[in-house]
Design a protein around this nucleic acid. Sequence first.
DNA 1: ATGAAAGCGCTAACAT
DNA 2: ATGTTAGCGCTTTCAT
Lengths: 353, 353
Amino acid sequence: MGGETYKSMAGQKDNEVPAIRTLADLARVAGVSTGTVSRALAGKSLVNVETRERIQTLAREHGFRPNQMASKLRSRRTGVIGVVIPLGHELRQHISDPFFLTLVGYLADELTEGGYDLMLSRALPDGTSDWLDRIAGSGMVDGVIVIGQSDQYDLIEAASHSYRPLVVWGQHRAGQNHCVVGTDNAAGGRIAVEHLVASGATSLAFLGDTTGIEIADRLRGATEAATAAGVPIRHIPIPLATDAMGPEIEAAMASQCSGINGVVAASDLVAMAALRCLHQKGMRVPEDVQIVGFDDLPLAAQTSPPLTTIRQEIAAGARAMVERLRALVEKEPATSLVMAPTLVVRQSTRAEG
Amino acid sequence: MGGETYKSMAGQKDNEVPAIRTLADLARVAGVSTGTVSRALAGKSLVNVETRERIQTLAREHGFRPNQMASKLRSRRTGVIGVVIPLGHELRQHISDPFFLTLVGYLADELTEGGYDLMLSRALPDGTSDWLDRIAGSGMVDGVIVIGQSDQYDLIEAASHSYRPLVVWGQHRAGQNHCVVGTDNAAGGRIAVEHLVASGATSLAFLGDTTGIEIADRLRGATEAATAAGVPIRHIPIPLATDAMGPEIEAAMASQCSGINGVVAASDLVAMAALRCLHQKGMRVPEDVQIVGFDDLPLAAQTSPPLTTIRQEIAAGARAMVERLRALVEKEPATSLVMAPTLVVRQSTRAEG
DNA sequence: ATGAAAGCGCTAACAT
DNA sequence: ATGTTAGCGCTTTCAT
């Protein structure tokens, strides 16, 4: 690591005042009962305005915070939502997918807004099949959001029968039980291919490993559209992990991509790697090869050239997930949502026509 | 949003078996006392091996999970670490910085590994100055990690005097109290400039807003090195938010960058935007203009051309932060860590010489 | 090795 | 409007 180390005062004692730690302490100081303090701090209406303000002031002065564990235990409501990323088919056991991370960011916003806290876990499914139960049944959370089905679709589906407040980002399958929010991936694949064909591509490749069912659906849609248009398409299953991608893509490009003039990438990151690869081989984008990404992450607008891509509505998706979860927490029903992807044309493809 | 909606069964009732919900329930079924069940489930040694296994099996069969709220309340240890991102000077009130998000990913790994759960909050400092106290004093967490000091350095420093288990990612200042882990940003700026000068740059620009003290230090280091080398350097304070960056950078480039042949970017994302901009203006990188990024995010290797950048050790930093926090939780002292940045040479700069 | 009992700090009836 | 009381479900002495 080669760094330097500095002594810090952290860990040493300051002088502490005999602190107010519990409702009872505060109650004694205020000359009222714990019940009143509890109500006053919760801002309930049945407390005299004057005593309430006196107590709140007192609490502030003493820097008193009611213990949430106790509160949550008693009220049987945690105010916490668990957010889990299953790392089923990822090679590296690390949360690195920028799409997921971005979604987490938006979820954090939406949940905070709604008065919830967010407990983040990664799960390494290991066949014991209890990663979901463990978090769902811990009593620590009011509900669970799963980001990406990975290869755990069946397990999630099974869990959803006994655990209700559960919302998943991912792929919708006909007749499924669990509430899912996601993009119509097949449509996305289709749109990408149609755009490429309309702008002159005659030989296509789909770049990306299809272990995740979302990606598989993108490939399915792309293949259907290619077939319909009578254009050949080749599937090149390079892994999706950001940092493993470079060499793999180069090898694949060198050996399998001769003659290809249109690329559908499984994600913006794959597209970016392809862009770099082609650039280094002296191929011009979009003149020699056109590329369409998937996701429309903020960085898609910053590549050279800026990426034409299939947009997923991340912010809207996060909002929809939180709305649905809230409904399920309140024991109301919730419907799945499959959002339509949209084509964002930038400069990695040519004009249609 | 323009999506479709599917009915889902979620929210309807399955037939439930009269479930085992508490230790007492399990104790009754097992014909022992709650104390024994508690000990058996915790795997304590003082329980008869046979009864322990019987109870554990029983628990598994009934899908029983002890309520964590109750457990944590009683044992006065939450097993949860709060991770906060203060959004002090960010324009958009959204956690979007990919560096921070990546760091969160690594922290999730390290904390999970260490048996901790991670509670993620964003904080919108609003002058009431209690965003840190609120999470620290909530009784919900054993310790707090703050990601980025933003413009809240003083508040964090103040809080660290009364709240001990606190570790911050950011900039170290001489004599500070709070335990910080971070990169020597001035050195990073210096290294970037030295590399640019050594590879032939004669007129420099530093791209990035310096409200965050880390960025300010990068600029300071860069300026020092430029002065020492007798090379002019201009500061162009474009905002760092990913999506606001495009137009701003174009405007700045057009008006202020004539003659510049070396760019130090405040982050890889800024560098990427600059890359795109130059590309569109027909300038070649590195032939006409050389660029050095900062962070070495995984995507830095995927730009065209791949980015020469100043690497921050994110994974090692996450590990160091968790180690230090653990020490502080155990009431042991902890030292700050300032890691040395390293130059990663790729193809956005020319060979030195 | 196990049981009994006393809380952890708070909230929510139920009184008054 | 406020006080009193009974737990929330678990852990942990203290007995046995």
